[in-house]
């Protein structure tokens, strides 16, 4: 092989290595870049109505001049062996005022089941103003055959809620959890 051909070949290998590195970096970018970016955007903007874990800031002031109506809905796929509904479908609260509501879930099958409720809030832009102190959606629930449970959720609405918002809709979807370990979901919800 001549000298120039040798040189050209070395350069070929070098460019190949760089491009190979770029493609590996792109794979890594999907996992450590795009997926966290998606979750971050959802969290910051509240798009998708995904509410976050227990709130850490507690508010003492109650704004009695405003009445906010909060509606509660329950949904699940039709073929699931559960009954799932909100016991309090509609409450009136003042911003800052703590309130407790309940959802009832019943396992209608003859097996022990684990369920997980996933929240979604509407309109999206109030997501950051809806604070949960305690919620059944923070963890999975184990239900014995035929067992029925009233699950509590304690929340308050932030007084900084935009003035034009009078109604908030909170929806929970119930999922059956075959094969999902408890530890899997702690962090994300």
């Amino acid at each position: 092989m001549s000298d120039t051909a040798q040189k050209s070949n070395t350069k070929n290998i070098k460019i190949m290595a760089q491009l190979g590195l770029l493609s590996v970096a792109m794979v890594a970018f999907v996992f450590v870049g795009l997926v966290p970016m998606y979750n971050w955007i959802c969290e910051v903007t509240g798009i998708g109505g995904r509410t976050t874990g227990p709130t850490t800031e507690l508010i003492s002031e109650i704004d009695e001049s405003r009445d906010i109506r909060v509606q509660f809905m329950a949904s699940m796929q039709t073929d699931m062996p559960f009954e799932f509904r909100a016991l309090d479908t509609r409450v009136q609260v003042h911003p800052g005022q703590q309130h407790t509501i309940h959802y009832r879930v019943t396992n209608t099958s003859d097996e022990t089941r684990t369920v997980q409720a996933v929240p979604s809030l509407s309109p999206y832009r109030v997501t950051e103003h809806f604070h949960k102190i305690e919620c059944f959606c923070f963890e999975q629930t184990v239900l014995e055959p035929g067992e029925s449970l009233d699950m509590p959720m304690i929340f308050y609405v932030d007084p900084r809620l935009p003035e034009d918002v009078r109604t908030i809709a909170m929806s929970y979807s119930l999922f059956n959890m075959p094969g999902y370990a408890r530890a899997d979901i702690k962090e994300t919800n």
């Binding site: 997926v35 959802c42 997980q116 999922f175 959890m177 999902y180 899997d184 962090e187 994300t188």
Partner: peptide, 15 residues
């Protein structure tokens, strides 16, 4: 059993 796209496990089908 990860939950990248499973809403029940904290993931998102929209992702």
């Amino acid at each position: 059993q990860t939950s990248f796209f499973n809403a029940a496990g904290g993931g998102s089908p929209l992702l």
